[in-house]
Design a protein around this nucleic acid. Sequence first.
DNA 1: ATGACGGTGTGGCACCGA
Length: 258
Amino acid sequence: MKIATWNVNSLAVRLPQVLDWLAAQPVDVLCLQELKLSDDKFPLVELEAAGYHSAVLGQKTYNGVAILSRTPPREVVRNIVGFADEQSRVISATLDTPAGELRVVNGYFVNGQEPGSEKFAYKMRWQDALREQVRAELSAHPRLVLLGDFNVAPEDRDSYDPEGLRETIHHTTQERDQFKALLELGLHDAYRLFEQPEKSYSWWDYRMLGFQKNRGLRIDHILVSEALKARVQSCNIDRAPRKNKQPSDHAPVVVELA
DNA sequence: ATGACGGTGTGGCACCGA
């Protein structure tokens, strides 16, 4: 069975591409970020026709996350419990899958703009709260997947220019320490469980021919808990949708579980 | 230091993303 994450940068614009992709890659679960639409604008009917149930936390214009699943999501939790947040960035659900019952936590992590900014401080606060949420989720649900747009390139090899971009946004020690702190909860970066091509990225700037020149970052991640680690069969980035007309700036990441 | 591209909502552009 397969689980995927994809920052679609507006589901209103990208829905046809999402439906095409699901037809070509019939994953069991697809977690979306940056819906950029309110719940009432969510294309429930179209996705049901494609064979997917949805759990949604929408927001007008910015943010917004959803879990699409072949089976109905259960025990849905929206955003971070006890962390007041006007932005729609996290949705969690329990799913019955061919690989058994899984807890899925789908996050659109804060961008942070620039180290030292108020937005960067929010990024750190938000991650502190998310980590505690994940810690609690893990103790209740050992079979857990945390995935989404983490807005961090965890290591130098996850960036097209680690030297030139050192300590800039997505590359700071603080952001990388936050990522490590998630791993220390007992999570594993599924992509790095396997040998991968060099210069593998999941996001490329729309500007300056970023994709054509492969000037990208690997910032979309799938972390699996210890209980699931041995069941991971593969993890890959699907660059094909980035070649579409009107693409998202992110590519889907797919993990296969036995 | 700035903008490049693309989406949204507004209103003739500004803001945000990464």
